[in-house]
């Protein structure tokens, strides 16, 4: 294993985060093989509605007699895939815009940053609701693209700020004095030095994105039914959760654990990527 990975795994915090993410990802990837039931099958509307957690249904069932554990495992596939892909898209866009603003000169910088300011002044959820209102059916690729393209603004600012401070550093000036062309400057002197903050922001961003996706599903503008999604599982449990706490508690726990795990991982990465550590 590379020294960085070893260094990251040195702390208990990182081990817990890694473990949680491994379990979540494993459960999501292997869901078709290990999930005890079909996540959308209504098992027995007569006898199994809102069954409490038991040996047969570890996390209980919902009011359509569907197995909650299976639904959470399948829901993880959606949540994790959408979050990971949209964060990737967002990081690529944000980095490109941030580099352009930081290196492109005053006019380019001013134009791009005013654009970002404008975008940031619109509340994220409102923006998403408005954009998603154009489609009647929301597919996974559509959701990824919309989430990715509406979340790079912060990253672009982060990258721009890092680039501007790098440009003042003596080693940057030394490379300019050596006659390094722009492409080389970006590849060797800029990207390696902004990679750390970007990776940390992306990791923390995955947790955020899971919350946003859950929020959208909760509001009924997520992935089309009947694909299970953590946010909508909570939404659907609203009327029954007083009598059947498990219908809201377990999907909520799934969100909590996932967001927390990525958050802890992000913090660990930040510490581990510091070359002086």
């Amino acid at each position: 294993m590379s020294p960085v990975v070893v260094r990251i795994l040195r702390t208990t915090r990182a081990q817990i985060a890694f473990g949680a993410i491994a379990v979540l990802t494993g459960g999501a990837v292997l869901a078709p093989l290990i999930a005890p039931y079909d996540p959308i099958a209504q098992l027995d509307l007569e006898n199994l509605r809102l069954a409490a957690p038991s040996m047969r249904h570890w996390l209980g069932t919902d009011d359509l007699s569907r197995d909650l554990l299976s639904r959470i495992m399948y829901g993880a596939r959606i949540s994790l895939a959408v979050a990971a892909l949209s964060v990737t898209l967002s990081v690529v866009c944000g980095t490109a815009v941030g580099l352009a603003a930081g290196l492109g000169g005053k006019t380019v910088d001013a134009l791009l940053m005013r654009l970002v300011d404008t975008a940031l002044s619109v509340p994220r959820l409102i923006l998403l609701i408005v954009v998603l209102a154009f489609w009647s059916q929301i597919s996974i690729p559509l959701l990824v693209v919309v989430l990715g393209l509406t979340s790079w603004f912060d990253t672009s600012r982060l990258v721009r700020a890092e680039v501007l401070s790098l440009r003042e550093r003596a080693f940057y000036q030394a490379a300019v004095a050596a006659g390094a062309p722009t492409a080389r400057m970006v590849r060797l002197h800029v990207l390696p030095n902004v990679a750390g903050p970007i990776i940390v922001a992306a990791t923390l961003g995955i947790g955020q994105m899971i919350l946003v996706e859950a929020g959208l599903s909760f509001l009924g503008i997520g992935i089309a039914r009947p694909t299970p999604s953590w946010g909508r599982m909570i939404a659907e449990s609203q009327e029954v959760m007083v009598n059947a706490w498990w219908t809201a508690a377990f999907p909520g726990c799934a969100i909590l654990v996932t967001v927390l795990a990525f958050s802890l991982l992000g913090d660990s990465l930040r510490d581990a990527l510091d070359p002086r550590a």
Binding site: A170, A174, A177, A178, L188, H189, P192, N193, P275
Partner: peptide, 20 residues
């Protein structure tokens, strides 16, 4: 021309790329 003129900086921490 840059080949013929070079600079040595004051700050020995900042003058080297920490990732190189």
């Amino acid at each position: 021309l840059r080949r013929r003129m070079q600079i040595v900086f004051q700050d020995p921490y900042g003058s080297l790329n920490p990732r190189m």
